[in-house]
């Protein structure tokens, strides 16, 4: 599964980077979303793949940390999901406002000069 997951991260990141370099605002937004999936999965993967052992503890008693998934990357990613949502929303609004102001959806606010 390691192979599949890392390939998946690579595909998501590549699609994201390609879109990031496109000239249309909408492409860049979709690119940022894809890139954030890739990065979230990457951070999550730092905790390694643990199957069937979510970090939910019994109440009290001795706890063997190796029997559970690493909670730290999960907490980090949870935060990252919310923040990337906020970023997407902000960028989307900037996109709408810029389109209204400049009349174009090019990232520079004007069409490329030939």
């Amino acid at each position: 599964m390691e192979m599949v997951l890392s390939a998946a991260i690579g595909v998501l990141a590549a699609s994201g980077i390609w879109l990031l370099l496109r000239p249309r605002t909408f492409q860049v937004i979709v690119g940022l979303c894809l890139l954030s999936y890739a990065v979230n999965l990457f951070i999550f993967a730092m905790g390694r793949i643990t199957l069937g052992a979510p970090p939910i503890m019994p109440r009290g008693g001795f706890i063997d940390p190796t029997a559970y998934a690493d909670p730290l990357p999960q907490a980090l990613v949870l935060t990252a999901i919310v923040i990337s949502f906020a970023t997407t929303a902000l960028f989307l609004v900037v996109m709408i406002a810029s389109r209204g102001l400049t009349g174009t959806d090019h990232v520079d606010g004007q069409e490329r000069e030939p």
Partner: peptide, 15 residues
């Protein structure tokens, strides 16, 4: 090309 290199790099590090 940039995208493929970037994606492949990230995939390698992740693996």
């Amino acid at each position: 090309v940039i995208a493929v290199v970037g994606g492949a790099g990230l995939a390698g590090v992740a693996y």
